[in-house]
Amino acid sequence: MTALLEARNLNKSFGAVNAAKDINISITDHEIVGIIGANGAGKTTFVNMVTGYMNPTSGQILFSGQDITGREPREITRLGICRSFQVAQVFMTATVFENLMIALGIAESKTLFDGLRRMRRPEVEQKAEAILNRYRISDYRDAIASTLPQGVRKLLDIAMAMVAEPKILLLDEPTSGISVEEKFELMDVVMGALKEEGVTVLFIEHDMEIVERYVSRVIAFYSGEIICDAPPAEALIDPKVKEFVIGEDPGHGEVTAENGHA
């Protein structure tokens, strides 16, 4: 089976700091993969390299067998890899509906002439309304993005990333900044919508309860290296993961405040 996304011997250095060391990952269609690791482990660096935000120092990134290493973010987006951000990246002075209309307008503009078509067309508006419903943000349709609660802004960010109908979606900490009460509700909405659309998902997460509940595979990073790649049931009891990611001392089984359990 050809991998949908493949990283081969990926390295990234920032001066003397190696943020990625010989990363080898292969993701197949429809997988839901959780990327875990402490702060500075190299998770976001990996996502940034895959989505063209930064170029690897060496190594290759393949998407459906095609080399996409070093391509511009917009080219990678057009190929079918989209992303959301740790801090939601939306158009703050526009309403939720306008944000989606702009995103849909861009997604449907394959050429310059497409871009000159009227943005507000009935079929595009219908799509925007459907997305509002799918991500359960229709109550905020006419709210300006800067006034939105954090959770709704995150949902909008993810919804905007999905308008291009990507084959793979990378979510960078979708529940960061969300209250404990809201995070499962948010993830239920997101994962429900993403499964409905049949997209492969890679998401960075610090909360192990979220990881355990939603992913089929866990990739754990530590100091720029992959220390574990296994199903969650195995990964979360792996001694290295327990020590370097979850923060438990294998000898005592303590849980620290940093991993979100305390």
């Binding site: 989505t51 973010p73 702009i102 861009i106 997604a107």
Partner: peptide, 23 residues
């Protein structure tokens, strides 16, 4: 009124998002 024309406020607000929408 076109998509390109509407990329005024979008550019002013958030160029990163514009790039990651594919333009």
């Amino acid at each position: 009124q076109s998509t390109l024309g509407n990329l005024t406020r979008a550019i002013r607000d958030n160029e990163i998002r514009v790039e990651y929408l594919g333009i």
